[in-house]
Amino acid sequence: MNIVSIIILSIVGLGCAIAIYFTNKYLPSEAEHLKKAEEISQILPNMNCGACGKAGCFAYAQSLAQDPNVIVETPCMAMMKNEEAIKELENKLGMKLAGSDMNKVSIIRCNGKSDVVFDYHGINTCKAAAQLAGGYKKCPFGCLGLGDCMVKCPENAISIDEEKNIAVVDHSKCIGCDLCTKECPNNLIEVVSGKLAQYLGCSYTSKKNIVNRDRCKQGCIHCHICEKTDPDALDWDSKKDLPRFVEKNKESPNSVKKCPKKIIVPLALDMSKYPDEPKEKNEKKTEEKQTK
């Protein structure tokens, strides 16, 4: 009895093994470009963010295997920060890529803690909150801080700043996949080149009047100081009543420093290159006073 059961189990197992072997052998092998697509998709991030416009990383790899020029027209943003993967992909496709020059990041054009007009206890998403009388914050253009963009982010680069009650992007993690821009009901998020020197962190427009709404204390106060300090880099957008950068990649450290509300935020601009001289003097003076 025992022997028979062992024999039957082995025979059935052997039969299964043989069946798998023959299906493997006699099925048409995968087409050439599918094999290549498989190899390429192993290099790709495989997070299926959809930023390239394809249905997923494997679909992107398939189109790359057929025509390598696709990567120039619609580059995979998610791997531009990964130097090794880019090199590997260059070898595989046999072409040179611009690499980190194509790097993009998303920015949120809101910088502050706006006052709350009414308490909101509805569905916990920005989209639902924005439906109700233009949002619960005093500034109708502000970030609602309920994290629609945070949920969408494939890299967990967006988090909610508890103190400011707005979403903030960690630019070292952001891959510029453009998924968050569609989520924001106030259209505050924008994907920009990683080389952009600085950006304006406020979207308030005084031209659009809504009853009982006003700018927040952290927003642009339309003082024109930035325009006056750095007329080369900035001019005034009278339509939106906000400053505007003429040349996108031109560094303007003075306007970053001078802005009384600190809403001109440096991005690629390295502020440590431009030490804050007057402030240091002030500190020294206070120190001197204290010693006296």
Partner: peptide, 20 residues
């Protein structure tokens, strides 16, 4: 026997679908 058969059957089906 059923575990054995089902496991290898799924393998074969997966392989077939993948190739065809």
């Amino acid at each position: 026997i059923f575990i054995l058969v089902i496991a290898s059957l799924v393998q074969i089906i997966e392989m077939t679908i993948r190739r065809t």
